[in-house]
């Protein structure tokens, strides 16, 4: 295979990797907030259930979770959905990352001083106003470095979609490597991941700069 065809193939795979990346962020960040609320619930049963959910998702390999999501409708209920590879990957990634984001949010929310809540209460802010106008904007600043870490990890984790043979960049790199009996596609893929992550780190640094207007 010529080098240009290989680049084209890997670039196509990169698009799919970015698709997994984008959709996972889109779904897992809000979902993580819900999970975080569940985890921080005053109801001990609710917080226990969400705590268990988080510990399972953080404590088992993502690759395994992807397989479970994809194959379980069949093995558990005998339902044959057919080829829903891509949705299954997005579901698997989203719930896994939601668990991590939930804990990051929690750490941020717990770092907000009690006085902020009391000031909001005295000023008659409602509970949701207090959260979205006072607490959450401050939480974002606190958790940004941790979120950046998580996002960079996600870029690399998209390669785990190979376990469901989704044609993202790493899967394609493996196939080209098999065809041409060489390691070159892996090196190119590594370069692609690295450049994408440089971009991610740059964007996140801009966010951090934007939020540096207060201490």
């Amino acid at each position: 295979m010529s080098f240009s065809v290989m680049l084209e193939q890997l670039a196509q795979g990169m698009c799919k990797s970015m698709l997994i990346f984008g959709l996972t962020l889109l779904f897992s960040m809000p979902l993580g907030l819900l999970v975080c609320f569940g985890r921080m619930s005053k109801n001990r049963l609710v917080s226990g259930i969400f705590g268990f959910f988080i510990s399972v998702l953080r404590g088992t390999p993502l690759m395994l979770q992807l397989m479970v999501v994809y194959f379980f409708p069949y093995y558990l209920f005998g339902i044959s959905i057919g080829n829903w590879r891509f949705p299954a990957i997005i579901v698997g990634f989203s719930i896994n990352y939601a668990a991590y984001f939930a804990e990051i949010y929690r750490s941020g929310i717990e770092a907000i001083p009690k006085g902020q809540y009391e000031a909001a209460q005295i000023l008659d802010y409602s509970k949701s106003q207090t959260f979205f106008k006072i607490v959450f904007p401050q939480v974002i600043k606190i958790i940004l470095p941790a979120v950046t870490n998580e996002i960079i990890t996600l870029v690399k984790d998209t390669s785990l979609a190979f376990s469901l043979a989704y044609m993202e960049m790493f899967t394609i790199a493996k196939q080209i490597a098999a065809r041409d009996t060489t390691f070159v596609p892996y090196i190119v893929a590594a370069l692609f991941y690295y450049i994408f992550n440089l971009l991610v780190a740059f964007v996140m640094r801009q966010f951090e700069k934007k939020l540096s207007y207060y201490n």
Binding site: P113, G115, Q116, E118, A119, I134, P137, Q138, K141, Y214, N215
Partner: peptide, 10 residues
């Protein structure tokens, strides 16, 4: 008015 002000820093 609080002892520690509790202004919203953001």
């Amino acid at each position: 008015v609080f002892q520690s002000f509790n202004l919203f820093p953001h």
